[in-house]
């Protein structure tokens, strides 16, 4: 615990710095929030277009899918708030030789490169996602309960950690493949999270559940709220998240040891 405390204090400082920066660019904030709302509206419209032809797709009603769109929005905002701003910068640190200065600091370098930047405007998207989730949930006649809510949050956390681990593993490859942008690919994969995994079949569904684990981030939390999830999946999720995090840390350390810097 005493080892953890300085890290918590450091993270709090990251948040404060992000606040100060955000207050400086208030117009940006406004545009960002407007863009987020437009994105959500278009996502909802896409499903309204789909559901004008049918009442259910792969067992999901329109209201249930819109709940999932809300969950997707929340998780997406969480990733864009804390994870994306950092992971999209790492390749640049290596290209420009700035990684050296990050490695010199007396804290875990993975902590520093993963959590240093925050995009606080994304909090607006979390709120709009939550609003859609509650509205669509009422339409779907969900019986809200604390137990289901806690389980949904647990699934979502597992999902976010898993996505972080997978993304971080690919970003770590930048030490060798300096000119290959892995971020685009990650965003493309994560886009599939806006659909329930049961919309896909066979190998694609398996990949989206375990290899690129978007199912844990969006489908399973929604199913928890609907009370139809297989509870054992939560254990699988926790185990996968633990393995993913350890693997990302080991691979990062390996990469750093083999890093011949650009400038020194």
């Amino acid at each position: 615990m005493t080892r953890l405390l300085p890290y918590l204090r450091l993270w709090r400082q990251f948040v404060v710095t992000a606040f100060v920066r955000e207050a400086e660019y208030r117009f940006n904030l406004l545009v960002g929030v407007g863009e987020g709302l437009a994105q959500l509206a278009l996502a909802v419209l896409t499903f309204l277009l789909l559901y004008q032809y049918t009442d259910a797709v792969a067992g999901w009603s329109r209201a249930q899918v819109l709940m999932l769109v809300g969950v997707y929005r929340i998780v997406d905002a969480l990733i864009n708030l804390q994870i994306a701003p950092n992971l999209t910068s790492i390749a640049g640190y290596i290209q420009r030789g700035e990684m050296d200065f990050l490695l010199l600091r007396p804290v875990e370098s993975q902590f520093l490169v993963s959590l240093r930047k925050l995009e606080l405007a994304e909090a607006g998207n979390m709120v709009s996602g939550l609003a859609l989730l509650i509205y669509a949930g009422n339409q779907a006649h969900v019986h809200w309960s604390v137990a289901n809510g806690v389980e949904a949050v647990a699934f979502a956390i597992c999902g976010v950690l898993l996505l972080y681990a997978v993304w971080f593993l690919t970003v770590t490859l930048s030490f060798w493949l300096v000119k290959v942008g892995m971020d685009e690919l990650f965003y493309g994969m994560f886009d599939t999270g806006r659909y329930p995994v049961s919309f896909f079949k066979g190998i694609v569904r398996t990949v989206l559940t375990f290899a690129i684990p978007v199912a844990f981030a969006t489908t399973f939390p929604t199913q928890s709220l609907l009370g139809v999830v297989d509870h054992r999946l939560l254990l699988v999720g926790c185990a996968l998240a633990a393995v993913g995090l350890v693997a990302s840390h080991l691979f990062w350390n390996y990469a750093v040891q083999h890093y011949s810097s650009a400038s020194s």
């Binding site: 685009e184 690919l185 886009d191 599939t192 896909f200």
Partner: peptide
């Protein structure tokens, strides 16, 4: 890969429907 991936996902969904 990403340019192909987006339309492909939409396609799979519509094929399911």
């Amino acid at each position: 890969v990403n340019t192909l991936l987006g339309p492909l996902i939409s396609l799979l969904v519509w094929l399911t429907v």
